[in-house]
Design a protein around this nucleic acid. Structure first.
Lengths: 154, 154
DNA sequence: GCTAAAGGCACAATATATTGTGGTCTAATT
DNA sequence: AATTAGACCACAATATATTGTGCCTTTAGC
């Protein structure tokens, strides 16, 4: 742990207790160079992200909710729970990498869509239609007809 | 560290590396009960708080900025750097305890003011006038005359 | 102006984390 | 299709953190 005062890279733990939240660990550390003390918190990896919905309202990113939407799109389709969990995991990781504090729900939809598309075209179309990823109705119909042609050719 | 899956209280560290940010530690932990693994991050205590300014604009809470304002108010007054640091520390701790994501700058002003008042009346008046803690000019004058009477009686 | 709650500090016996090295896997890139 | 970067995993030797206990100080609530 780097000292926040002098940037030195060696510190020692002086005390460790449970944080305010039972799910966090608070440590008191001391820099081995400058001797100053500071506090750190260890927490489970979280994604604190405000999702901007189409109507402009914001709500906290909810992994379970995202998963729910995907499950619905995959009803009676050959997509396993494991597949879905993987899509959620990967999308969440992608969101984490972006490191934004807010994001348009549409962007999240796109992340799921690009993964779902590789797995099952029907699920993908269902999901995309819910997330209204198509600019207008003609785009949607175009996508549908492309899909039905593709299926016939198999 | 509590297991996020089964809530068990015993986990072991399986791996520990530097986080993306050099200032964080990433640990991979394993629950001793259910065996599932998860990731945690240890970071230096921070205060991520949006300060709502009088004109409605928001900006990230900045400890150095707050300290600067206090220093200005204490110019040529018998208030030590240590005193000021203590006021900043305590106010910051108070803000942390509130645990809000946004706060009116006025509220922060009040926290500083109640501490500064105990230390030095002149500094307090200067600081309060900058933060416009008085509803109108008459309040300000009232405060000033109270103060000057108090000083004469000593 | 008392009391409780929280954070900070210290210490000593014990248990656990850390470090380096290196392999695997996947996603993104070229 | 090959390459790179990041996360994950494993292991073994070493160094460090953790736990309990208890005391002090400060702030908040009565």
């Amino acid at each position: 742990m780097i000292c926040p005062f002098c940037e030195h890279r060696k510190t020692r733990v002086v005390d460790k207790r449970e944080g305010n939240d039972v799910k966090t660990i608070r440590r008191r550390r001391e820099c081995l160079k400058c001797g100053r003390r500071f506090t750190t918190f260890e927490k489970i990896e979280t994604l604190d992200l405000l999702v901007i919905k189409k109507d402009g309202r914001r709500e906290i990113f909810d992994r379970a909710k995202l998963r729910g939407g995907i499950i619905k799109s995959c009803e009676k389709r050959p997509v396993s729970a494991g597949d879905i969990e993987k899509i959620v995991d990967e999308s969440e990781a992608e969101l984490r990498k972006i490191n934004a504090s807010e994001i348009l729900s549409k962007k999240i939809g796109e992340m799921v869509i690009k993964r779902l598309k590789k797995l099952d075209e029907i699920s993908y179309i269902r999901f995309a239609s819910v997330y209204r990823q198509f600019a207008d109705l003609s785009d949607f119909e175009k996508e549908l007809s492309k899909l039905s042609k593709g299926l016939k050719n198999k």
